[in-house]
Amino acid sequence: MDVLNFTYPGETRVSHRAHVGVVGSGDLEILLEPSPDGAAHVRVRTSVDGYAPIWRKVLDRFFSRYKGCVSIEINDFGATPGMVMLRLQQAVEEQGQ
C-alpha cells in the first residue's frame, strides 16, 4: 500500500461533501469535503505500489479544470486512470447537488 499526498491551488469555495465508490477490485472510494484552507488537498491510499507519477498525471489533469477548495481522500483498489477520473467527476457532481 502506498500513501501519496498532493496539493493544488484552489479558487472556489465548496460547502458540501460527497462520497462515491467502493474499495473493490478495479474501483476506488472518494471522500470529498471543503478544504480547511484556500488550497485543494488530495491524499491517496492505493493498493498498487509505485504508481505515484501516474497519480500525479491524473490529478494534474483533473485540477487543470477543477478549481474547488476541497480535501479529497482516495482509497484505491487498483482503479484505472479512466475510472479515477470518472469517480472524481462523480464526486464533484454529487457535491454540487
Binding site: M1, R17, H19, V22, E29, L31, R45, T46, E73, N75
Partner: peptide
C-alpha cells in the same frame, strides 16, 4: 456512522491493506 466518521479498520492498515471508510 457513514464514511465521513472514518471508522475504518486499524488492522487492515497495519497489514498494508487499503481500508474503506
Amino acid at each position: 456512522v457513514g464514511p465521513f466518521d472514518r471508522q475504518h479498520s486499524v488492522w487492515l492498515e497495519m497489514q498494508n491493506i487499503v481500508p474503506q471508510e
